[in-house]
Design a protein around this nucleic acid. Structure first.
Lengths: 223, 223
DNA sequence: CGGCATCCACAGTGATACTG
DNA sequence: CAGTATCACTGTGGATGCCG
């Protein structure tokens, strides 16, 4: 992208990550560090192969992304964020939070990937993350099952299933998102017949899901 | 801009403000709400007139910007941010903070506008703003003098001069920025002969300028 | 002068096909 | 799997013109 040529922090940032797709590539690497080229392609529905290469090169030159020639067992190149790249997390979260209310109006033919769920979860739990008690929630809602694990205030996501999850959420992405964002109680969601939650112990839903302040912050309903 | 078509908060945000120049327009309106078209043109060196109109229309449709047909004394249309638009502030600040280290490498032929200074100032003082005691710093460093006023944790900027400022900073933008960012002490700056500070009472420099943590966060020098 | 609209050369983008 | 190549298309930047 052409530089703005302005002596301003925001303009400088946009010089680096203001290109189309750039920040979404950063999103992918924030969610799943150490991605293969194909993983990125899959996580960025709509991008074309040449653009992905171009952007990765640009971000590499800018010191945001690094490529590791993988050791024998993997035998492929892995893309990851540099330390500098990881510093984009607060900005990405802030932008993501701003866009949360817009998710309500999204049409149903939009692309969706399960692991994107980790972003709103991290946003919602940003200030009151479950400190001591580790927690695992399994989501079966998109292209693949993912597990969101919280421990010591940090949130991780990995593809796959959990051994003994504190809850399992099944249903269309929109509804699952609403539950996680605190816009919908576990029971409401179940009443709408789209969401099947299985809180551990068959008791009340896991507390963090209910006390979450929610994404929109003004009571917007996501569904 | 073409929509990404992804059911993701970040992607939705970029659908709205991901266009080239869009976020810089938001910056301008965050810094000086109620701008005339010409003010925006001046605050966005490099933008072309047609693009500014296009973007303003887009942002208006998106509910980020509103236009007020001005009352008689002004007799022109004023652009301002909607409440929704103002919610972009945390994201803009986060992005601006990320770009702060990049300001060091900026060439000298970059465009600069004095009122942009309010952004780094707000970032630096974000967490430990001077609460009780109001403060005013006058900057004479760019195209026009500006006064940065802090009171009750809020930071305002206005063009013009202050009656009895707590300090006056004169010099090239780079150095003034460094002082405000806490990268350079008042004395160091003065020693480099570019900055002339006049703390009130001829005593030590105003405390907030020295205790500021700084923009870069890792001791990067801005000059 | 403020607030646009029009026109044009060009760089960036997106879809597809192809390759080691 | 990880790109490269090609090409039609769209968005951008710059200039300039119009109009109250």
């Amino acid at each position: 992208m052409r530089s703005y040529g302005q002596h301003c922090g925001l303009a400088k940032t946009l010089d680096v990550i203001g290109d189309r797709w750039s920040l979404l590539i950063v999103r992918e690497l924030l969610l799943r560090d150490g991605c293969r080229y194909t993983d990125l392609l899959h996580g960025l529905p709509g991008i074309s192969t040449n653009l992905l290469v171009d952007r990765l090169r640009d971000l590499e030159r800018a010191g945001v992304v690094a490529r590791d020639e993988a050791p024998p067992p993997v035998a492929t190149t892995l893309y990851r964020l540099t330390a500098r790249g990881k510093e984009l997390r607060p900005a990405v979260l802030a932008l993501g939070r701003w866009g949360a209310p817009l998710l309500a109006k999204g049409s149903d033919d939009e692309a969706f990937r399960s692991h994107w769920m980790a972003l709103p979860v991290e946003i919602v739990f940003a200030d009151h993350a479950p400190k001591g008690t580790p927690m695992a929630i399994e989501l079966r809602t998109g292209d693949e099952p993912v597990v969101i694990e919280a421990a010591d205030g940090a949130i991780h996501t990995r593809p796959g299933t959990a051994e003994d999850p504190d809850g399992v959420l099944t249903g269309p992405p929109r509804l699952v998102m609403a539950v996680l964002a605190g816009k919908l109680t576990w029971e409401d969601a179940r009443a709408r017949a789209g969401v099947r939650g299985r809180p551990r112990g068959a008791g009340p839903p896991p507390p963090p899901l209910r006390c979450a302040r929610g994404l929109g912050g003004r009571g917007d309903r996501l569904v």
